[in-house]
């Protein structure tokens, strides 16, 4: 839903991920883009070029932070140094909400730098919700958790992934970043109907949607973010928009990155499915 408490009451349209190969084009040409999503960790540094570029972007664009290593699903609690740096960055960017993944990635102080799948257990629900609440309270910005692509399932699981997601966000009272490409990838890898997933998610909690491409191998699909969005993923997106209404949408393209124009064009395909913003309707009516 647009402009809810999970988006800090702001209504964003279609954005793209800010990536290094596009820096020059964006800073020199200043193309019209509704918003950029940044990978928080790339800018959680002390000084230097990353922050210099970010500050220039912030002069002209709206930015939303997306993290890749908070690991809400870790058995351990969130790292304090990480939280402090993240909070400092939110003050810089004024991000209306921030997101990270429904996954784990480190244990006993050792990091995998991967988005690892959760065992869908009640125990994991409790710990994940606790960690999300702690991050949300510390940073003071609404948090949206993103479903990940996965390639393995645990015997220990006691529920489906979407049941797990719903339980976690209810207990943490947070938003959802619904990645429809990840739903598709996991549905193929684990053989479920992706629309069952979309239909189960609480639409009022969906703060943002991710779209992306992937790579199909003979026996599984990898979430590579290096292709255009395929039709079955658009179909899931269409259904998500039917349920959630106008929702901030973001295209991720992280490898074999084409020109800025091509990435932006691909992202704007989402507007075929998005209802107009209330503000736009008012302008037309006037």
């Amino acid at each position: 839903m647009s402009a809810t408490r999970f988006t800090n009451q702001v209504d964003y349209g279609v954005g793209i991920g800010l990536r290094i190969p596009h820096y020059q084009h964006i800073l020199e040409r200043k193309p019209v883009v509704d918003w950029f999503e940044i990978i928080s960790e790339n800018y959680m540094v002390d000084a230097g070029r990353p922050l210099h570029v970010l500050d220039q972007i912030l002069e002209s664009y709206r930015v939303v932070q997306h993290g890749v290593s908070m690991y809400f699903g870790n058995a351990a609690r969130p790292n304090r140094d990480h939280l402090k740096k993240l909070k400092a960055l939110t003050r810089r960017t004024n991000t209306p909400w921030l997101s990270d993944h429904l996954c784990w990635g480190s244990v006993d102080g050792r990091y995998t730098h991967d988005l690892l799948p959760m065992p869908y257990t009640w125990e994991a629900v409790e710990f994940t919700a606790r960690n999300i609440r702690e991050v949300q309270d510390f940073v003071g910005v609404p948090v949206a958790v993103e479903n990940v692509s996965s390639y393995a399932e645990f015997h220990a699981s006691e529920m489906t992934e979407w049941e797990f997601l719903c339980e976690v966000v209810e207990r943490a009272d947070c938003g959802i970043l619904l990645d429809v490409n990840n739903i598709y990838v996991s549905s193929q890898n684990h053989t479920f109907d992706p629309l069952d997933y979309v239909n189960a998610v609480s639409p009022e909690r969906v703060a943002q949607i991710h779209i992306a491409g992937h790579t199909k191998y003979e026996r599984f699909i990898l979430d590579t973010h290096d292709h255009p969005v395929i039709d079955p993923v658009w179909k899931i997106y269409k259904r998500a928009i039917e349920r959630c209404g106008r929702t901030a949408t973001l295209l991720e393209w992280d490898d074999k990155i084409p020109s800025f124009q091509e990435v932006h064009r691909e992202a704007l395909k989402a507007t075929r499915y998005l209802p107009e913003a209330e503000s736009a309707k008012v302008e037309v009516a006037a």
Binding site: R19, I39, N42, V68, L222, T224, D226, E252, D254
Partner: peptide
Amino acid sequence: STSARASNAMSG
């Protein structure tokens, strides 16, 4: 060349 080092996209 550079790469998206913190994106967590999978590589083939």
